[in-house]
């Protein structure tokens, strides 16, 4: 293990390390800790200039309640869910199929198609912006959740195909051959042999896509405009306009907006990291 395991080092370094750890963490998360403290302060603290002193009273519950009752925040959150969840499902369906096709079968244009997906996944959003916006307008899906969902599914298919295909490649191919010898139809191989084996990869991909889509801001701004369809990342700017310099509200709002992917991460940590680091080791 590198660096040298702490238990094999001198006593003094062990103590230094143990005390350095929490200190470093606090420094690292300082901006967030500040926002968390802001979000439980009463409004009066900001008017009296008590930004960094102890809160004069605990208003956490009031502030967070206000986020949910006095603004469009619940609606934006709902929109975010209604955009994110269908996208994740769509991506799972499409990319498990493309990944299966590219991972299992050998045909001439296999690598070419694979690279098309990979390359498309890297392009800057701006090169797609105007045509995608036009297309969405023409389909009558501008400012709808559906418009965003369709685009997100399509775009994420690039990344997800890369993910799925590499995972399927790593599966033992003998399984598929054995199934073929048994005379099992190809689509049944997909459904009954490969798909069950893909479960951990699908879970990892689902949490990743959930986070990506939840946190998307650019497409939300390009394809939606009002509280009807806007997800929380775009909605928070209107929220901020509504509350101006009420920093306790802005902080509480930001925390609420950031929370679902954070919760997802902590609940599905193993899958999340497995997905993110796929390919980081060989």
């Amino acid at each position: 293990m590198f660096p040298t395991p702490i238990e094999k080092t001198s006593r003094s370094w062990q103590i230094t390390y143990q005390s350095l750890l929490p200190l470093a963490l606090i420094m690292w998360l300082l901006p967030l800790i500040a926002v968390a403290i802001f979000s439980i302060k009463p409004a009066a603290d900001f008017t009296t200039g008590n930004y960094w002193g102890a809160p004069t009273s605990f208003e956490g519950i009031t502030n967070y309640m206000a986020v949910f009752t006095q603004s469009d925040m619940p609606r934006y959150l709902m929109n975010s869910f209604l955009i994110t969840v269908p996208t994740v499902l769509g991506c799972i369906i499409l990319s498990s199929m493309t990944g299966f096709a590219l991972g299992v079968y050998k045909f001439r244009s296999n690598l070419l198609i694979f690279f098309m997906f990979v390359a498309g996944n890297f392009v800057p959003f701006q090169i797609l912006m105007i045509p995608v916006r036009d297309l969405t307008l023409q389909m009558g899906l501008y400012d709808t959740k559906m418009g965003l969902v369709l685009f997100h599914i399509a775009f994420q298919t690039g990344f997800c195909t890369l993910f799925m295909r590499n995972f399927i490649r790593a599966l033992p191919f003998e399984l598929i051959e054995a199934a073929r010898v048994e005379g099992i139809a190809e689509w049944r191989i997909y459904w009954f042999v490969v798909l069950p084996l893909m479960k951990p990869a699908l879970a990892a991909m689902a949490v990743l896509v959930f986070t990506f889509i939840w946190n998307d801001y650019f497409w939300a701004v390009v394809l939606t405009q009002g509280p009807e369809a806007q997800p929380v990342t775009a909605g928070i700017t209107s929220f901020n306009a509504q509350f101006g310099v009420a920093y306790h509200m802005l902080s509480a709002g930001s925390i609420v907006a950031a929370l679902p992917p954070v919760a997802m991460f902590f609940l599905m940590q193993k899958h999340f990291i497995a997905g993110l680091t796929l390919g980081a080791v060989k």
């Binding site: 299966f100 498309g120 392009v123 297309l135 369709l150 195909t161």
Partner: peptide, 14 residues
Amino acid sequence: FLTPGILFFAVYVI
């Protein structure tokens, strides 16, 4: 298996 994925990707990306 590729058709739906390619179709989506072509329309929205390529």
